[in-house]
Write a protein that binds this DNA or RNA. Structure first.
Lengths: 222, 222
DNA sequence: GCGATTTATAGTGTTGACAGTTTGTGTGCT
DNA sequence: AGCACACAAACTGTCAACACTATAAATCGC
């Protein structure tokens, strides 16, 4: 997987960054482990310069932390921090709802409907692997409908950061169906341009996710 | 201002980062200008490596942007982007209020009272230079009172980003007094642990700032 | 044998140099 | 004069090497 050769049409930095993100997302790099710059550089066929720059970016994104003379580590976040992220995310998602309700287009609403339908299919097939990307796409569309650049920039980073905590395969049965029912209610509120209700429903949708998250924590500790 | 010599007790990167932030904040580096890595490296007495790493951090913080083969530029944000930041900031500040209302300590409340008193003094002296840092400190204390790590991390970056836009010295007469009245109302709501009112007042406090910002825009265009 | 100390190995933080790109300047042509 | 083109200077993106730190291994004293 040696990165693209010289023609200076792209920088190595974003390539390296995405690769590290992928490694974290796939569980290849797990919380607390150190990033070995030399080894990674060799593996990706680049020098340590671009690696370090990518790590600085990821540090700011909250996926890595740095320690003097010891390098970069995959961040591990505490339960409290994860819950804090849920609350902040709920606040931002609610704001997105209030903003989106008055300006969302029928085209965007149709797109949301289509995603809900696809998620329904995934649910009847009990296909969790299909459901998750659809769910993410749905959330992303909602945030984009707010037409607020800062929100659109910020929201995905919070989701990514939660992946640091989320142990795979801890899905409560029936949560997908409940979640999609909430999706339907949200789109209804947006369609009637009800800013207050849309905002409240979207905030609560994330807080419901937080509640499910807490329940999975109880399960694992038991 | 050549950075500290070798004893490897600190990295150059944060030093360089703060220096660039300072240059932007002081107007020494203005929007759109390119960061000349070699020149800056020479000036700070370090090599280009740490400079580039600091720039990556600042890129993620929203203060710089990068262009392939052309390097880093001081970001200039559009009026719409600035307004978007105000809205997001209002949402987060309101959230901070709702969270803080139920957990704020009397010690923290006293600290807020003290700052309000100091701001009053600055107002009667018409001392804008004294008012601003006090105002920032007040906002920071409020956010910290939320005890939400993500919020505490995120909020200051939004404020910093607005500095990219804010042309200095455009303060509406009387705004300081109005602002401090709002501060008093916020602290009152927090003291009575009224989450709803505190949240709403804090959100509106930022939106009032946004409104003042818009009025200064009208002034300059006229 | 076991703990403290020394030595060796591995890895980060930083540097200076090189290759390729962008940009400013000057030259020739019309 | 005006414009396209070629050339030179400036600068970025990347690399390989060096200095220093931290950690693992080995040695010594008990």
């Amino acid at each position: 997987m040696t990165a693209n050769r010289n023609p200076r049409t792209a920088s190595f930095v974003p390539v390296v960054q995405r690769e590290i993100e992928r490694m974290i997302g796939s569980g290849e790099l797990t919380g607390g482990t150190r990033i070995n710059e030399s080894t990674l550089a060799l593996k990706l066929g680049v020098s340590r310069g671009p690696i370090r720059e990518a790590c600085r970016t990821l540090e700011q994104l909250g996926l890595l932390r740095s320690e003097l003379n010891r390098g970069f580590f995959v961040r591990e976040i505490s339960t409290k921090q994860a819950l804090d992220i849920y609350d902040t995310r709920a606040g931002l998602f609610g704001l997105a709802g209030r903003l989106a309700a008055s300006i969302i287009t029928t085209h965007q609403l149709n797109g949301l409907d289509a995603l809900i339908a696809e998620m329904d299919k995934a649910i009847t097939a009990s296909d969790i692997a299909a459901f998750y990307p659809l769910n993410n796409e749905f959330h992303l569309l909602l945030v984009e409908a707010s037409d607020n650049a800062k929100l659109i920039e910020l929201y995905p980073t919070l989701e990514a950061e939660l992946h640091l905590f989320r142990r795979r395969g801890l899905i409560l049965p029936g949560s997908m169906r409940v979640s999609n029912d909430e999706h339907r209610a949200i789109v209804d509120a947006l369609r009637t341009a009800d800013t207050t209700v849309a905002g409240r429903l979207m905030e609560r949708h994330i807080l419901a996710g937080k509640a499910r998250f807490i329940r999975t924590l109880d399960q694992t500790s038991a």
